[in-house]
Amino acid sequence: MSSRTSTVAHQFDDAEQQRNASTLGIWVFLVTEIMMFGGLFTAYVLYRSSYPEAFAAASHHLNATLGAANTIVLLSSSLSMALAVRASQVGSRWGTVAGLVVTIVLGCIFLGVKGYEYASKFEENLVPGPFFDLPGAEPQSELFFSLYFAMTGLHAVHMVIGVGVLATLVVMALRRRFDADYHNPVEIGGLYWHFVDIVWIYLFPLLYLLGRH
């Protein structure tokens, strides 16, 4: 039995049909993800339009420099992920592993910076709750920070899961589970990672940069 026939599950006619099915499957999952983040984005749009001054004032307490740096880190991780998928398509095992490891490292750097930002917010009493304290600001600024933690927190959870997915892919690649004919898991993991990147592409300007002018 050749490696190609062994990697095509019996319900599929051929490898291409199997690949198309897995791509469609992850996209349907990503649509449910769009709707989950969509609820938070809807809350954000509604309350930002209701309390524009309070949101703009609260946004100034986020560190735009760190946010921009983290955006570059995440875009770099998308590049290394795309390079890993490319390597898997041409059957380069070490290229795949290298791309995935770089992506994991960049993902961890992002989470580290995020953790530092969260710690700063705790020190500055900007975490919603009984200790929230923003002198001279309207009360709705607390709502901004509730949305900030909910949106970036849900995003960070996705990053942690993504790092776990990529680590699994590294192990699979090292065990020679992929070749030029079969690398669907790498492509699907890549689509998930890029999606999480896209969520941050929207979060960065909406949370960090509003009311800067």
Binding site: S78, L79, M81, A82, V85, E187, G190, L191, H194, F195, D197, I198, I201, Y202
Partner: peptide, 11 residues
């Protein structure tokens, strides 16, 4: 930016 990621990176 999202469209570039979807069309190119996400193939």
């Amino acid at each position: 930016k999202a469209m570039l990621v979807i069309v190119i990176f996400m193939e």
